[in-house]
């Protein structure tokens, strides 16, 4: 497909944003490897991590292609600095305890499933391909994290308190999932990107349903929301993540698989 340089530039930003979300969240989840509360959850968390990192490879490959500077997906993942990462702040938040990880994952998974489902209608062949492939993986993720929301919320007094705290603390990071700017506007006009306002309505509806069922209170959408990640302004967390994620490549630049 032939796009103008302008479209390509925005397509690259778009692919970076959505690729970075999955790379950073995948990395966060991988930190549970060998530390899961039970063996099954160790496997589940790292399998989800694997799916997300796999998806980020497709996104960042496309970001590199549309960037037109001859970069590869590895350059995108390993050789950009904090300000160049475009992920939402939600995904870089710390694992804390299993309740935090569950709430963070749940907020993202519900969004992810709706996002990919919509993106299957994109006019762009590559994005359509990524969406068709990934949406199947999302269904497993969303089922897993939803079940844990219910189990923790409607579980013991302690688990209820922990997931309640996690929902309260992480809620202010959810607004950014629906952030849109000129990149989205230009791509929506071409039928390439999707309107995140539609995703937001569906997200709130479905997140509310599970939170209610988990005997927790649903926070309001009209509350203070953090933002910055999409423009490269991050919390302190990202630097720490990148120092670990990029260490090998930066220390041994010529290392090959």
């Amino acid at each position: 497909m032939t796009y103008t340089d302008e479209i390509k530039k925005h397509l690259s930003i778009y692919a970076q944003r959505h690729g970075d979300d999955r790379l950073i969240l995948g990395h966060r989840l991988s930190e549970w490897c060998g530390h899961g509360p039970i063996l099954e959850e160790d496997l589940a968390t790292t399998n989800t991590s694997l799916d997300l990192i796999g998806q980020s490879v497709m996104w960042l490959k496309y970001a590199a292609e549309t960037d037109g500077l001859g970069k590869t997906e590895d350059d995108m993942a390993y050789l950009r600095s904090e300000r160049e990462f475009k992920n939402v702040l939600l995904v870089e938040q710390q694992n804390e305890d299993f309740a935090y990880t569950t709430a963070r994952q749940f907020f993202f998974d519900v969004y992810d499933l709706i996002f990919y489902s919509e993106l299957r209608n994109s006019t762009d062949e590559t994005l359509r391909g990524i969406a068709e492939k990934s949406v199947k993986e999302s269904t497993y993720h969303v089922r897993h994290s939803s079940e844990w929301m219910l189990r923790l919320g409607d579980g013991t007094e302690e688990s209820h308190q922990k997931i309640k705290n996690a929902v309260a603390d992480l809620w202010m990071y959810t607004g950014e999932l629906f952030f849109m700017d000129e990149t989205d506007e230009i791509l929506i006009k071409e039928g390439i990107a999707i309107d995140l306002n539609k995703v937001k309505t569906l997200w709130y509806e479905n997140v509310s349903k599970i939170i209610n069922e988990a005997t927790l209170e649903v926070p309001s959408l009209d509350t203070f929301m953090q933002k910055g990640g999409r423009k490269g302004i991050h919390s302190e967390n990202l630097g720490h993540i990148l120092s670990e994620l990029q260490y090998l490549k930066r220390a041994f630049p010529t290392a090959k698989w």
Binding site: G26, D51, I53, G54, Q55, K133, E137
Partner: peptide, 8 residues
């Protein structure tokens, strides 16, 4: 065609 996105 890959099976799973992250299939090692």
């Amino acid at each position: 065609t890959p099976t799973y996105s992250g299939c090692p």
